[in-house]
Design a protein around this nucleic acid. Structure first.
Length: 875
RNA sequence: GGGCGCUUAGCUCAGCUGGCGAGAGCGCUGCGCUUACAACGCAGAGGCCGCAGGUUCGAGUCCUGCAGCGCCCACCA
């Protein structure tokens, strides 16, 4: 036994965490090799943006993965947590462009090459930020394998995939309707467009008949697109327009003749039942245009101003053009009416600019054949979702997938590996053509880059050396589980599945764990405009990484959003401190013990030993099952409850009574086991304690220690039942003491009426009960009559406890106290009842006031009854 | 217009395949510095488990309907 407390009185994460992390990382504990022993277990991190910084969403996502990877490692799996960052095309380019704007420059002022140099420079400066922030959280990624979506190895994989899909006809260039962000000046895929319900208006425009008749009235929310109209469509069955079909109407302002056609896509119930058709600027109209071989007139420029095709409106901003078109039509008496109309506006998910549907020449992935295989893989369970219900939405989405627009009119990203020769023919190349060839053939490379998600789709295999057949690839593909918030399923999970199945002929992971989004304490989304954003680094500074991790994980029920507030983290920190102090106590009893097999546990053991070992086994079983189901919330709660409510509150207190080797061994063994079980969730405090608990052994870390083996034979339901009985006796006596205001120093005498077996159990636990309940003298009696004087009776399931009150309390004083209290209660009750009996009060007072009065009456009535009972018991 | 989730103590949430005599954290009340921890301990108050039916020996848990809240998806111009 050591004389001094071996650990500081309070756990100090700020000192411990950086020290341990450096030690872990420099010792190579995070690193894995393909030929390391154990069944492979790989998690690919959802790559954070290289220029991003850590927010609570990352903290949740990373805490879950770190818990799982540490758990797998301790269970002897060859566990790799593959880290890396994403070049985040639009996001990063926007950041740098904003910087340039501050200098009064646009990217075109620099030119492509110098602009890219500038972005790389920014990446070098700020790219390490987030990975260092991740280290603060304790993430045990294999940093030696860190990858970047735009580094050479990943670029090679991108090239290979692009050319291969191109050769198979699954990547093609086409002139099609896409989403255009005028601010970013690039095409977007469908899922990069957010839809927001917006109050707008529906304008009714009259297109006169070519022969001078009334013509037709159409409705639109975007009047300026009429400049690009090439037809008017009605439903084939709509009798209102029978006479018009086949005729022509005149497009006002531009005096263009438009055919009136029929198409099933027209909803006769909407607007006037007649639709203006603008194939170049509306997805529906585009389809109609395809079916009827209509001309497409693109009236928009890249900047969303009206193009030359808009005649007199050319050069106007789209909104100004909308106003002018309506005004001009109105002047001609052709604006029939304008009514309010709410509809979903498409916004650029990066900059919230209103997206313009637009006909454009872009590159696409023909997703259908790829999606079919992904659908099959999810259907037959090769990749399963946790929670399972999330598979449905995912499948629905895949089944209705449109081709994926992958070209972006940006500079930051993987440039499309296609060259055009003098004739305009396309050549997709795995290698850049040499300068001589470029010269000879007049080759020019496609200027566009690929959607960021194209490269991240390859992540599970591009990180392991593909397209080469490497040991790492053979070992860690497919991964075990992909951990991500549900909002990334379409962006990323779907594409990894499609690409993995196409190029690796196997799913990239066996499971997708969907966690929720981190919200504030009232379930609101965290956002700068609400002012409710919490910075995870602040929380780590104040409470420690373990506290933040525990607070997140204890709420991380699969699929459910996670509310977060500083006070929850504070609570988690207290738990770390509790564990710390329990360890201090154990160390005071035992001093450090050797590493290796746990000392033999005593046999036969006292009840409390059998009980705590049984509870440990129960906690271990729950934790194991929860970890295996990726339910860190359940694991966290089970271990918290075990450590605090069972080990600390009961076992430790009982161990204080003893001074024997058996107790010391159990104390140490159970603590050691709890540290192992908790380590994946709270790696720092458990490691720090574990080091102190054991004799120094260089290079030995809890994070590489063995997991707690199942020991079902330790489960002892009889011990648990018996201990439960003692627990009940102690609790009942404590309640009795509290009710009677007995000082802690006051020893009470207790008579026990109990039968055979119960009597034995209670007798066996006497010492513990004495200590925990402050009992002085005890005796077993057959009936209440055998104890003299006024009695407090405590009925329990297995016994009746009798506490003589004489001498314990001054009976006269107690009687006086109770009498006065009873009097006060009756006065209050009477007052409340009188008030409630007054009809005026009940009828006219605000309902909540009346309710409050009723509640008061009930409370005083109950109090009076209790006091009466207690008084009667004194006689 | 579809799909999904949520509705349990003042607040935020657990409650897995039906057994609950309904839990946790925070908050609240009372007592206590008992030498691991006052960043603590002990005790307590507080719940028609959204509403209405149904299945069952038994329902917070399963089924049906309804209501409120939230999210996702969708080309109604």
């Amino acid at each position: 036994m050591s004389d001094d407390a071996p650990l500081p009185k309070a756990y100090a994460p700020a000192e411990v965490e950086p020290r341990l992390y450096d030690w872990w990382e420099s010792s190579g504990f995070f690193h894995a090799e393909p030929d390391d022993p154990g069944e492979p277990f790989c998690i690919c991190i959802p790559l954070p943006n290289v220029t991003g910084s850590l927010h609570l969403g990352h903290a949740l996502n990373h805490s879950i993965q770190d818990a799982l990877i540490r758990w797998a490692r301790m269970r002897g799996r060859n566990a790799l947590w593959q880290p890396g960052t994403d070049h985040a095309g639009i996001a990063t380019q926007n950041v740098v462009e904003k910087q340039l704007a501050g200098e009064g420059l646009a990217r075109h002022d620099l030119g492509r090459e110098r602009f890219l140099e500038r972005v790389w420079q920014w990446k070098e400066e700020s790219g390490g930020l987030i990975t260092n922030q991740m280290r603060r959280l304790g993430t045990s990624c294999d940093w030696e394998r860190e990858a970047f979506t735009l580094d050479d190895a990943r670029s090679r994989a991108v090239r290979e995939v692009f050319v291969s899909l191109y050769e198979d006809g699954l990547i093609y260039r086409g002139h099609r309707l896409i989403n255009w962000c005028p601010r970013c000046a690039t095409a977007l895929s469908d899922i990069e467009v957010d839809h927001e319900e917006t109050e707008g208006e529906l304008a009714y425009l009259r297109y006169p008949a070519a022969g001078g008749g009334e013509g037709v009235v159409v409705a639109t929310t975007r009047a300026e697109t009429m400049l690009g109209d090439t037809a008017v469509a009605v439903h084939p069955d709509d009798e209102r327009f029978v006479d018009l079909v086949g005729s022509t109407v005149v497009l006002p302002l531009l005096d263009r003749e438009l055919p009136v056609i029929v198409d099933e896509a027209v909803d006769p119930a909407f607007g006037t039942g007649a639709v203006k058709v603008t194939p170049a600027h509306d997805p529906n109209d585009y389809e109609i245009g395809q079916r009827h071989d209509l001309e497409s007139v693109d009236v928009m420029t890249d900047a969303a101003t009206i193009s030359e095709a808009g005649g007199p409106y050319a050069g106007l901003d789209r909104y100004e053009a909308r106003r002018r078109v309506k005004a001009d039509l109105d002047a001609q008496g052709l604006l029939v009416k304008v009514e309010p109309h709410t509809h979903a506006l498409g916004l650029c998910s990066r900059c919230e600019t209103v997206v313009e549907p637009r006909l454009s020449e872009q590159w696409f992935v023909a997703v259908r054949p790829l999606a079919e295989r992904a659908i099959a893989a999810v259907r037959d369970g090769r990749t399963r979702f946790v929670p399972e219900r999330n598979a449905k939405g995912f499948l629905d989405w895949l089944e209705n997938l449109h081709d994926w627009c992958i070209s972006r009119q940006l500079w930051w990203g993987h440039r499309i590996p296609v060259w055009y020769d003098r004739d305009g023919s396309e050549h997709a190349r795995r290698e850049d053509p040499d300068p001589a060839e470029v010269e000879a053939e007049g080759l020019t490379q496609d200027p566009d880059v690929l959607d960021t998600w194209f490269s991240s789709a390859l992540w599970p295999f591009s990180t392991q050396g593909w397209p080469d057949d490497t040991p790492a690839l053979r070992t860690w593909y497919p991964g075990e589980v992909l951990v991500t918030a549900y909002d990334i399923n379409t962006f990323w999970v779907s594409r990894m599945l499609m690409m993995g199945l196409r190029f690796m002929h196997d799913v990239p992971f066996h499971a997708v764990l969907n966690h929720g989004l981190v919200r504030d304490k009232h379930g609101k989304k965290m956002s700068k405009s609400f002012g409710n954003v919490i910075d995870p680094l602040d929380l780590i500074d104040h409470y420690g990484a373990d506290a933040l991790r525990f607070a997140l994980l204890r709420a991380a029920v699969p699929g459910q959003d996670v509310p977060m507030a500083e006070e929850w983290v504070e609570g988690a920190r207290r738990f770390a401190n509790k564990l710390w102090n329990a360890a201090r106590f154990v160390l005071m009893q035992t001093g450090p013990v050797p590493h290796g097999d746990p000392a033999d546990l005593p046999e036969p053991a006292p009840l409390e030993d059998r009980w705590i070992l049984s509870r440990l086994e129960a906690a271990r079983a729950t934790a194991d099952q929860a970890y295996a189901e990726y339910d860190l919330a359940r694991a966290s709660r089970a271990l918290y409850h075990f450590v605090w409510d069972e080990y600390c509150d009961w076992y430790l207190e009982l161990a204080k009574l003893r001074d024997d080797e058996g107790a010391r061994r159990v104390l140490t063994y159970v603590l050691d086991s709890a540290l192992r079980l908790l380590h994946p969730i709270m790696p720092f405090v458990t490691e720090e304690i574990w080091q102190a608990l054991h004799e120094p052994a260089p290079g030995v870390s809890l994070m590489r220690a063995d997991w707690v083996a199942a020991a079902p034979e330790r489960r002892d339901h009889r011990a648990e039942a018996e201990f439960g009985a003692l627990h009940e006796v102690v609790t009942a006596l404590r309640r009795f003491r509290a009710d009677h205001g007995l000082a802690p120093s006051a020893r009470i005498t207790v008579g026990v009426v109990a039968e055979g077996g119960h009597r034995e159990v209670i007798a066996g636990g006497l010492d513990g009960i004495r200590r925990l309940a402050g009992v002085g003298e005890w005796r077993f009696v057959d009936a209440a009559g055998q104890v003299d004087g006024p009695l407090g009776k405590i009925p329990l399931d297995l016994a009746e406890l009798l506490v003589p009150l004489a001498g314990l309390i001054d009976l006269d004083e107690e009687r006086a106290r109770l009498t006065k209290a009873l009097h006060d209660a009756r006065v209050e009750l009477e007052r409340a009842e009188r008030k409630l009996a007054n009809e005026g009060f009940v009828a006219k007072a605000p309902p909540d006031v009346v309710d409050a009065e009723r509640a008061k009456a009930d409370k005083w009535r109950t109090t009076a009854e209790t006091l009466e009972t207690q008084l009667a018991a004194l006689e």
